[in-house]
């Protein structure tokens, strides 16, 4: 890809890379660091991109590699990401319709990472199962089953009154499934 085209495509992909990074690193600043490193790597290895293939999938693969190479190094010294994420959520209690977006994100953060990744790639970014499998370096069937398990687990989590640890009684009574059904009905 010619340099100007490459740059243009890279710029256009940044918002999506930031969203994908957010599903790995729950702290937005850390997620952006991940994106920056991805951009450097993508820029320096742009000759390895095959024109005509999915550019965004190529970038997502790089971001993923960057994340996992860092993660191996850190040897899990860092954190319980779920806990971190929930702490960061606690300060943004905005309401979004019947099912609070913050509640949804809390549940999403509780999914096993491989399930969350598959769900986000397919359900949010709109990759095909095949593309998601290529990005994750696994079989198409594996992606399908991860997406299914992620969906089922999300419903369970949202149904759990203890989702946020100290959920208020009224929230517990209302029940997330009830809210989901209302959301669904609004359609």
């Amino acid at each position: 890809m010619a340099a100007p085209d490459f740059e243009q495509s890279l710029v256009a992909a940044i918002p999506h890379l930031r969203a994908f990074a957010r599903s790995f690193a729950n702290d937005p600043a850390r997620a952006d660091d991940l994106v920056q490193e991805t951009l450097v790597k993508a820029w320096n290895s742009r000759d390895s991109f095959t024109p005509g293939t999915n550019f965004r999938a190529w970038l997502f693969t790089i971001l993923r590699n960057v994340y996992f190479s860092q993660h191996r190094k850190l040897k899990r010294e860092v954190d319980d990401p779920d806990e971190q994420y929930q702490n960061s959520l606690a300060v943004q209690p905005e309401q979004y319709g019947y099912l609070d977006l913050a509640d949804f994100r809390t549940a999403l953060a509780k999914l096993p990472p491989d399930q969350r990744e598959a769900l986000v790639l397919v359900g949010a970014e709109g990759f095909s199962y095949e593309e998601a499998a290529e990005i994750c370096g696994c079989a198409v069937g594996t992606i399908k089953s991860r997406v299914n398990r992620a969906r089922n687990r999300l419903v369970e989590l949202l149904d759990d009154p203890d989702l946020k640890g100290g959920a208020s009684e009224s929230a517990a009574e209302a029940g997330q499934r009830g809210r989901l059904v209302k959301d669904a009905a609004r359609g």
């Binding site: 099912l99 949804f104 769900l119 986000v120 359900g123 969906r151 419903v155 989901l180 059904v181 669904a184």
Partner: peptide
Amino acid sequence: AIQGALGRKL
């Protein structure tokens, strides 16, 4: 319907 709502939320 729940899955549809989850998808929209996602």
